[in-house]
Design a protein around this nucleic acid. Structure first.
Lengths: 230, 230
DNA sequence: TGGGCATGAATGGTCTGAGGACTTGCGGGA
DNA sequence: TCCCGCAAGTCCTCAGACCATTCATGCCCA
């Protein structure tokens, strides 16, 4: 096997076998090189690979450690690659977000955490008052993020956040011909979601969230130069 | 900025800016080192990072290329990290799978691709006839995979496959006290899903799929040495 | 003329050695 | 007791050399 792959497999197995749990420290690089029978260059490339995936962390001057192996953190690493996916692929990802956020929004409506509705209303007030694209982006993320945090587990929250972040790179909300219409539709969508949560109506919440994101999908699809059916 | 991070940012920007699209070839390593102002070691570590994320590919003797940037392929790369997540985190991931597969199964029932029901029935026949853990694992993946492929987009299919693969590492189906009961319950769950698809009943399909995976969650939770609430 | 094959340039993969940069814990001094 | 400096430990970066693989060129032979 190639040297880097050998090192990669060796490091993974140290974790998979349970020899090194979350937060554990690896031996120093020279020692690992001996154990795995590869040079430092190859070892370091393997370490970088796993670090990119959020599985291990290197701390300059301190050592190399197994990460917390928290699924939400690992999923967050995905943003590095997801942000490079072209529009075609983003539309596929939005189906994931739509389904997951509909679920999370319904759960949030059912659970009705104390103060959630008030926090959401406050966010929407600010959101409706601004026309700055970056600020819209930010407040929209806060709104949906708060709902996911209240309704779903951290993994779902992280996954939807990654996809939301990617979609946001396409500036739907740049001032232009349709800006006012789009902004108003978006604002109404948010209010519908909040109303469903306030009324503790999970089914309505799921529908409202699903419709809201489906609308985003339509806007993004319109940005595509050559919108092919499917 | 640190050398490797500089190289990483540079490579990412080449893709993000559109200068290099899917499948495009990077300049040779020495040339990239010049452009980015880093040594070959640092450049190679950056390349490895992006390769681990499925964003670029190095081909020995040929060159370094931008990957297809296909979301399904990129998500598949996650299995490398997801497989190291401890049981605690797997339970969170299963909520994602449950929601997504319920959606995909409902879609499959609604679309009713030609021959889908027959293919699924054939898989279930083989699944019910075996007691080999590895074969059960394999056929279960085939069954759910076929449904996802028929009902959802490739991204959803890839994401559920990654999570399914991780869960499978916990051997629920090892011969033991509860083996027969678990196997029978699982088989019944599969038949319920197939029935809903055959009857073109999306709501029933979603419910059946959700219940089936929720059952898996319960079994996995039972494996946890110290089952804490929440 | 066409196909198979040797060959060499291009390119990524690996190893070695050296020095720099950062973190951390220890011990001395105020 | 607290602060500071110091030194050991560790990862980070660079440079150079050589190996392994790919691929296109062009030759040779049928």
């Amino acid at each position: 096997m190639a040297a880097t792959d050998t090192a990669l497999a060796g490091l993974r197995q140290m974790i998979a076998s349970g020899a090194l749990g979350p937060g554990a420290k690896f031996p120093p690089e020279p020692e690992l090189c001996d154990q795995l029978g590869v040079s430092r260059s190859s070892l370091r490339e393997a370490v970088r690979s796993l670090a990119a995936l959020g599985v291990i962390e290197s701390r300059h001057g301190s050592g190399t450690y197994v990460s917390a192996l928290d699924p939400a953190e690992i999923i967050s690493r995905f943003s590095l690659s997801v942000e490079l996916i072209p529009l075609e692929g983003v539309l596929e990802l939005l189906e994931v977000r739509r389904v997951l956020e509909a679920h999370a929004t319904a759960s949030a409506a059912a659970r009705q955490d104390a103060g959630l509705a008030d926090r959401l209303a406050e966010i929407l007030d600010r959101l409706e008052a601004t026309t700055d694209a970056a600020e819209i982006q930010q407040l929209d993320a806060e709104f949906h993020g708060a709902i996911c945090a209240a309704g779903a587990n951290p993994t779902v929250t992280a996954l939807t956040a990654v996809i939301r972040g990617r979609g946001g790179h396409y500036r739907i909300f740049e001032p232009g011909v349709d800006f006012d219409a789009i902004k108003q539709t978006s604002d109404r969508g948010h209010r519908a979601i909040l109303a469903a949560i306030t009324h503790r109506d999970p089914a309505a919440a799921a529908t409202a969230a699903s419709a809201h994101i489906a609308q985003t999908e339509l806007w993004l699809r319109a940005l595509r130069p050559d919108p092919q059916p499917n």
